[in-house]
């Protein structure tokens, strides 16, 4: 490898400039201009109508992320304690659903959760009262947890399964009970996995539009729906859409920055 090899990076640098940097600059420019191209901040002022949508999106995404940790963390721990062959099978089983189109899987949840759907049919058979869940924010959270749970489990699992067993034994020899072992040893060491899991669940949850449209009905509009409507939907206005996307992006970046500071700036994010 000679020093000339470094010129191989030029094509991709140009590519990134055109297809990554310029598009983001365009979002910023669109957010600050009106239809005739003049500078304006009206797009941001007009956003105050949508504060409730911002609130709902971040609130539901937060609940979904917390639920993913509550379900995903123990799952990753349980997996890492199985034998090697079972571990392999279970990890495969967690990844396998991702190979079926997520829209279809979410659509299948519609069939399950509908008022006259399969879940209520089952409940009636068991003599229980039917539940109303479709078109509620609960159904949207369920859809988020369902779709993004693997993104929480896999990074945590990949950290926990590489954990040195001798450390645990050492802690036990020194008199730590299982709870202390978890609190003082396993949890701090698994934090990088949890942090990248949080990012991988929160970002798609807060910006989704398909899940909320399928499971949330018309009442549970999320940021993703709002942006989609401004670009390809009924309320065509890419300037307002860009402004919403920009604000969402900035809030997400700030959240992630604060969280990573909180996690002592772990730079070794786990990439699948």
């Amino acid at each position: 490898m000679t020093s000339k090899t470094r010129f191989l990076s030029i094509p991709y640098v140009v590519w990134m400039a055109i297809f990554v940097v310029v598009p983001i600059i365009m979002v910023v420019v669109y957010a600050f201009t009106a239809h005739d191209g003049s500078f304006t901040v009206d797009n941001f002022r007009g956003m105050t109508d949508y504060i409730s949508v911002f609130g709902r999106s971040f609130y539901l995404a937060l609940i979904a992320t917390v639920l993913c940790i509550i379900l995903g963390y123990p799952l990753a721990l349980v997996l890492s304690r199985e034998g090697p062959r079972l571990q392999r099978v279970f990890v495969m089983l967690i990844m396998l659903p991702m190979w079926m189109n997520f829209l279809l899987r979410t659509y299948a949840w519609m069939s399950i959760l509908e008022d006259t759907g399969l879940l209520n049919a089952l409940l009636t058979k068991l003599g229980l009262p039917p539940i109303k869940i479709i078109n509620t924010s609960g159904a949207v959270v369920l859809g988020m947890v369902y779709n993004y749970l693997p993104f929480m489990v896999l990074p945590i699992y990949s950290v926990v399964s590489k954990l040195d067993r001798r450390l645990v034994e050492a802690a036990e020899d020194l008199g730590a009970n299982p709870f202390m072992v978890f609190l003082k040893l396993i949890f701090p060491l698994s934090l990088p996995g949890v942090l990248s899991g949080i990012t991988m669940v929160f970002v798609p949850s807060v910006s989704t539009f398909a899940i909320s449209q399928l499971l949330g009905g018309s009442k549970n509009l999320l940021l993703g729906d709002l942006i989609e409507m401004q670009f390809l939907g009924s309320a065509y206005n890419p300037h307002l859409g860009s402004a919403i996307a920009l604000v969402m992006m900035i809030i997400v970046v700030i959240c992630m920055y604060v969280m990573n500071k909180f996690g002592e700036g772990e730079e070794t994010a786990v990439v699948l």
Partner: peptide, 20 residues
């Protein structure tokens, strides 16, 4: 810069490319 499309929400990547 390479990591931007990975960390950005899909909808932001999609919308920005759409504008371009």
């Amino acid at each position: 810069v390479n990591n931007i499309p990975l960390t950005n929400a899909d909808i932001v990547t999609g919308v920005s490319l759409c504008l371009l």
